[in-house]
């Protein structure tokens, strides 16, 4: 299997981005990080701050997984595997927060 063959063996359904596109994606990630940083220093956002940060962080997460990890170009099985783990992790996170958030027996231990 050649290097190209190894590429093809990954069963890609769409063509991968070019070098230029990868660099542009990197720039986009940098800009989103700067916006996140600016938002965290902006007074007056109040309760909007956390949702804004979560959405921006989520966008960065999806971009890296879809384009840098090539999940967008792979078979759906790999996406299902990763999303399953991610959703399970989210469920664990929510469960732990629901159980222990603000519980003085845990906080003051």
């Amino acid at each position: 299997m050649s290097a190209e063959g190894g590429h093809a063996a990954g069963s890609h359904e769409r063509s991968h981005p070019t070098v230029r596109q990868y660099v542009l994606i990197g720039l986009l990630l940098t800009v989103i990080t700067i916006v996140e940083l600016a938002a965290s220093y902006t007074p007056g956002l109040g309760v909007l701050l956390i949702p804004i940060l979560m959405v921006l962080s989520g966008i960065k997460f999806v971009i890296v997984v879809a384009y840098f990890m090539h999940l967008r170009f792979e078979k759906a099985l790999l996406t299902r595997l990763f999303v399953f783990g991610f959703v399970l992790a989210g469920a664990i996170l929510i469960s732990l927060l629901a159980l222990f958030w603000g519980d003085p027996a845990v906080i003051n231990r």
Binding site: G85, F86, L88, I92, L93, S95, L97, W101, I107
Partner: peptide
């Protein structure tokens, strides 16, 4: 990919633990 999915659980638990203690520090 299965390994990376399992790592999501690992770091998800650690992040949840951090958030529990970040919320109310005595």
């Amino acid at each position: 990919w299965i390994f990376l999915a399992s790592e999501c659980l690992f770091f998800g638990s650690l992040i949840a633990t951090y958030l529990v203690f970040k919320g109310d520090i005595p």
